[in-house]
């Protein structure tokens, strides 16, 4: 494992923990898109079905289990435990516009036409756009809490670091997976606008707010 891959995983894990702690400590999921979190739960579930079919390493298995469990915990907090604080009125992105096209695409463009492989491909495609309901919510309300901005930054930078990891692997292991690379590029591009705001505002101690 190279440094980019490792930092990417740590960043992803940090994002998940930041979000869990934010909701749990404040007893509120205000400003968080339940739809994005639901999509991430679907992403992890469909991607990590290989937990049952092959073992790679203790690290790999434990990270997968943590990702799946925490995504379900987050969904549970939003739609059940702290349901009263969930801002559903602003969480209006139509997720079928993400799920249906990515599902169709995973049947058309995949490495192998088998159930597990199609589900894995679907999860890669869906992950690349799963943050859109959250970004849509931020743009709709015109602001995000600072802690939510940190969450979004950690989540966005994780896939960016994976891009460097893939360059590394191509260079030194002659390994590359075009499906993951293209989806990773799309995912990173979607965050660019947010990265700009994060660097120019949040890192300078200001709250992330968009011009009206």
């Amino acid at each position: 494992m190279n440094i980019f891959r490792f930092l990417g995983d740590i960043s992803h894990l940090s994002a998940i923990i930041i979000l869990l702690l934010k909701i749990w400590k404040s007893r509120s999921c205000a400003g968080i898109s339940g739809k994005s979190q639901l999509l991430f739960a679907i992403v992890f579930t469909t991607r990590y079905l290989d937990l049952f079919t092959n073992f790679i390493s203790f690290y790999n298995t434990s990270m997968k289990v943590v990702y799946v469990a925490s995504s379900y915990a987050t969904v549970w907090m939003i739609y059940s435990k702290f349901k009263a604080t969930y801002d559903g009125n602003h969480d209006t992105f139509r997720v079928e516009f993400l799920i249906v096209p990515t599902a169709i695409l995973s049947f058309l463009v995949n490495h192998d036409f088998t159930p597990l492989e199609i589900l894995w491909t679907f999860s890669i495609y869906l992950e690349s756009v799963a943050i859109l309901p959250q970004l849509f919510m931020v743009s709709k309300t015109g602001e995000a809490e600072t802690i939510t901005s940190h969450y979004l930054f950690a989540l966005g930078i994780y896939r960016t670091l994976y891009l460097f990891n893939w360059i590394w692997r191509y260079q030194f292991e002659e390994f590359f997976d075009l499906i993951a690379i293209v989806a990773g590029l799309v995912q990173t591009v979607l965050y660019c606008d947010f990265f700009y705001l994060y660097i120019t505002k949040v890192l300078k101690g200001k709250k992330l707010s968009l011009p009206a």
């Binding site: 790679i56 990270m63 994976y162 002659e174 997976d177």
Partner: peptide, 10 residues
Amino acid sequence: HAVHIAHDEL
């Protein structure tokens, strides 16, 4: 060469 992913990534 394009290698089918071994799913060793997360």
